[in-house]
Structure formats: C-alpha cells, structure tokens
Simulated assay, not measured.
Amino acid sequence: MKLVKYNQLEPNYPTTFSNMLDRFFNDSIGQNVKQFTPAVDISEDENHYEIHVSVPGMKKSDFNLEVIDGRLTISGERKMEEKTEGRNFHSLETHYGSFKRSFYLPENVKEDGIAASYEDGLLKVNLPKEEKKVNKSKIEVK
C-alpha cells in the first residue's frame, strides 16, 4: 500500500479554466496569504517510510503532528518577524502563515513507533513498518 496525499484545504489542480484564472490573479495580487503548502518528499525502504517536510525558519515547537484513524496530520505556522520598522521590502517570496498536510498511512505502519525530528529546515517523520506476520499452520491429512 502506498502513502496517499490527503489535503482537504486545497485541491492540487484547479478544476476549470475559470478557477485557474481566479487562483492565478488572487495569488499574484499580493494579498496577505495566511496559508502555504510546504514541499514534501516521501521515501520507503524495507524497514520504514520517511516523510521530509521542507519548512525553513521554524522552531520545533511550531509543529503539531497527530495520527487519527490511520491518517497522519502535520501542521504548523511560520510567523513573520515583527520587527519591520525602518525596512522597505522590495521582494518578499517567503511564505508565511499556517499549513496543514495529511497523509493516509499504510496498514503496516507501527503507529506507536512514529518519531519526528527537525534540523536545518527539514522536518523528518520516521514511520516504522511492522514486521510481517507469517501465518503458518500444518494441516493434518485424515
């Protein structure tokens, strides 16, 4: 089973050309965006899955991770510096605000063993796999 991206807040692609134009103009007007979607990489080996979330400029305390009904939700908020006195921004490309990403977990993930670490702008979530259970029984011929 594969990890499947689930994000109820924002669809991946606009459904119509009109929606695409609306999204383009709304995003480019320069409104104060209160949400952003960080980049996520997901990998797997024989022992575990690993999710990397690219969120530079945050603290460990800014993250919230929870598993509910087999769905991992990673959320947080990146706040802009309050000290803007005497500054004139000519370009501001960093995304600030809150984010929320959710993923359905495969059945073989050991939920009580999930661990997360944050270093150098990268949140790493380790999802260990349960050992494969081999059901073996001998059938007696009568």
Rank of each mutant, 00 (worst) to 15 (best):
K59M: 14
E66Y: 00
M58P: 14
R78F: 01
A116V: 13
V67M: 09
E119V: 02
L122E: 04
M80E: 11
F63E: 03
Q35G: 01
P106H: 14
A115D: 13
N47I: 03
S75F: 03
V67L: 10
P56I: 01
E46L: 01
E50H: 05
S102Q: 10
L65A: 10
F99W: 03
R101C: 04
K83V: 08
N88I: 15
K83E: 14
K124N: 09
K34R: 13
A39V: 12
V40T: 09
Y96K: 02
E46I: 10
E46P: 10
P56A: 10
I68T: 15
T73K: 11
E93I: 00
E119L: 03
E93M: 11
D41R: 15
G76I: 03
N88S: 11
I114T: 05
G97T: 12
N88E: 12
R101S: 13
K110A: 10
S54D: 14
D62T: 07
Y104V: 09
F89C: 05
M80D: 10
R78S: 01
Y49F: 13
A116S: 12
G70R: 10
F103G: 07
E81R: 09
D112T: 15
P56N: 12
D41V: 15
S61Q: 13
E82A: 13
V109M: 02
R87I: 10
G97A: 06
I51Y: 03
A39K: 13
F89G: 03
D69L: 14
E82I: 04
R71D: 05
E85A: 12
A115G: 04
V33A: 12
K83T: 12
P106D: 05
R71H: 03
R78C: 00
R71P: 00
T94F: 10
N88T: 13
D62S: 08
G70L: 14
V40H: 01
D120N: 11
P56F: 00
K60R: 11
G97E: 04
G97N: 02
Y96T: 06
F63G: 06
H48C: 02
E111D: 14
K79N: 08
I74F: 00
E85P: 09
V55K: 01
S75N: 12
T73C: 02
E93N: 11
V55H: 02
M58R: 01
S98R: 07
A116Y: 07
K79E: 11
R101L: 14
K60G: 13
I51V: 14
E50F: 03
K60N: 11
F99M: 02
G70T: 07
F63K: 05
E46C: 05
D45Q: 09
N108R: 06
G70E: 09
N88V: 13
T37Y: 05
L72G: 06
K59L: 08
K60Q: 12
L65K: 08
G121T: 02
S98L: 01
A39S: 02
K59N: 06
F36A: 03
I42G: 13
